[in-house]
Design a protein around this nucleic acid. Sequence first.
DNA 1: CGGGGGTTTGACGAACGTCAATCGGGGTGG
DNA 2: CCACCCCGATTGACGTTCGTCAAACCCCCG
Lengths: 258, 258
Amino acid sequence: MTGRFKPRLAPRPLDSVLRRLRSLSGLSEAEQDLVRNLSERRERHAAGDELIAEGQTGRRARFVVSGWACNQRVLPDGRRQIFSFLVPGDVFGLCERPAPPALSSVVALTALETVEAEPVVEAAQSGEAPGLARALAVARLLDQGLLFDHMVRLGRQTAYERVAHFLLELQRRLEQAGLGDSQRFPLPLTQEILADALGLSIVHVNRTLQQLRRERLIELRSGVAILLQPELLAGIADYRPTSLGRVPPAARTDRRPA
Amino acid sequence: MTGRFKPRLAPRPLDSVLRRLRSLSGLSEAEQDLVRNLSERRERHAAGDELIAEGQTGRRARFVVSGWACNQRVLPDGRRQIFSFLVPGDVFGLCERPAPPALSSVVALTALETVEAEPVVEAAQSGEAPGLARALAVARLLDQGLLFDHMVRLGRQTAYERVAHFLLELQRRLEQAGLGDSQRFPLPLTQEILADALGLSIVHVNRTLQQLRRERLIELRSGVAILLQPELLAGIADYRPTSLGRVPPAARTDRRPA
DNA sequence: CGGGGGTTTGACGAACGTCAATCGGGGTGG
DNA sequence: CCACCCCGATTGACGTTCGTCAAACCCCCG
């Protein structure tokens, strides 16, 4: 139990979902209402809970409403690799029916709230909610892009670059979900989790963070990250945000910039 | 010009495409004929040619008929990361219309032949070729799985494990395409390419291959790889092939193993 | 006051990268 | 046919990055 009472009826908690989807595509009022009325089938999980197991088949799409989760795989000897993080507003478990075996497991990293996304998925597929359909398609595409970014980090960047690049990515995503500003955002991850995402040891993550702090590029305190000099960080990490947000409704292929 | 004459009309060249698709889903005779008649819009490329540029939007799906290509990104300072390899039978450039900006570029690694896959894609989407639709869906899923496998290699495996794991993966894929047997397969990749895929330096790739050779686990000669002890390799690399090939036509979700 | 998870630090070693030289084979022009 | 050349493979020497081990520290909580 958390100490503070949270009203259950208000549309508030779905804010980040709505905000996220709107940042991906224009939505009609009806579409926005559909999202706001998703409050059914809400689920709460504790840190460490496995929401989807690798190989599981019966799953349904869900939105993260609050808290963080991740996609990961664990090797038999205990090593683990985190593929991606899920923050409020993100969708997961999205795929065609019947759902094929999951390729990775989804695990809660903090206390986590999710809601079933199927009403949105169905409205999108049936053609009655083209804005939502576009938003989901763009979300899928951006996820794929984040995976590639992560692979570049793992394969071709130093620990220093990896951490800087990763923090910039989180800043951008969380700002989009309405959970941070252009410099400051919540970061409820242990260094062990960071290590398993970035392909490093805990100790090395720690040292790298120390270095970034010493150089006055970042601050980390009690679950909040502050990027003191985002532009400098972006130069260090060669960070270039994928800018395909807001795809125009009807893309023309015959146009090109002079 | 290659010295040997190749007949252009025979269905032979599309063998690997057909074989691959059949390994993913049962196909009706009509569906198989559709694939066999794809010979139009054949294209030839030389090693190094860029088939799809990162960010490019107008592309169409194609099958690789012969030769190898890869998905990759290049950093401004010249470092590059290869995300995946495309071998005969593989499809690439597959996505909804209008095609969003490509998230990675596709580059020919050897002399390469491709054919347009759109007829197959359209038949699959229209519902008239459910077998092909399933095959394409499974192909997408397997590709995603390969990406995860690759990420585990990059983030959590040693050079030795990475190389072993990667070779096992290639063996399996190429055997499926009809291009190798349970131990032997073509490997027309330079050590530089391997390095850029596996997140290692050329020199270290070389040393790792030397070690695997010394230990009589593999042989490499003139573009052909031989896995002398696949089981041992699989143990070293914790290689577990994703076995979801041949998805049953109508999956039941209410069954579970006792 | 004690305990436990997460963080920090130091010492040390192994894995991997860099630099540079050499080797080797296939293609090419004389 | 042969000399040359170029790209890729190979090897050695050396430096750096990063991992491991272990201890201390810190803070929140019971």
